[in-house]
């Protein structure tokens, strides 16, 4: 059901690294680094401006892949990877999209597991990659059955 969609991607969505969103995120993860929050400190830093926490790309909108439907509940987040070219800067514009990269099955102790692999990408205005993710989502046999019935 998903195999035919491997390779498809969403249309890019423009996101901004908003200062208030960075503050809220930093507070939620308990990481009150002045480089995220204090403009005076950030001005004297290597980047001379505020940066965002490493997992902040989690907050962006990456658009939807046309035709791709997933169970609304019961999905397991198995693995996550981020690759960065540099930290993200507060105030910058980032063009984000997602790619459905791969799908495979494995036999687990509680039945067949389906692995869905996505990559989310953030680019600057010129189309240069700023970060890339690899997201592995696991669908158990039980969840899959309930959903397809």
């Amino acid at each position: 059901m998903w195999q035919s969609l491997v390779g498809s991607r969403s249309r890019p969505v423009i996101n901004w690294v908003e200062r208030g969103a960075v503050r809220k995120f930093a507070e939620a993860i308990g990481d009150l680094n002045p480089l995220y929050l204090d403009e005076e400190v950030a001005k004297k830093s290597r980047y001379r401006r505020l940066i965002a926490p490493p997992t902040f790309p989690q907050t962006f909108d990456y658009g939807t892949i046309e035709g791709l439907r997933l169970p609304e509940s019961g999905l397991i987040h198995g693995e996550q990877r981020f690759d960065y070219v540099r930290p993200l800067f507060v105030g910058e514009e980032i063009h984000c999209y997602r790619v459905f990269q791969d799908m495979y099955e494995k036999k687990g102790s509680r039945g067949r597991l389906t692995f869905l692999v996505f990559s989310r990408v953030g680019e600057d205005r010129k189309g240069e990659t700023l970060f890339k993710t690899r997201d592995v989502i696991i669908v158990t046999e039980t969840v899959l059955k309930e959903w397809t019935e």
């Binding site: 308990g30 990481d31 693995e79 960065y84 540099r86």
Partner: peptide
């Protein structure tokens, strides 16, 4: 959230560099 908390280990050093790759298995 757990991954973000693991990222905090490196936060004190962000004045000198950055995380280039961050991979986690849950």
């Amino acid at each position: 959230l757990t991954m973000a908390v693991m990222g905090r280990l490196f936060s004190p050093y962000f004045g000198h560099g950055f995380i280039q790759r961050f991979q986690t298995r849950f």
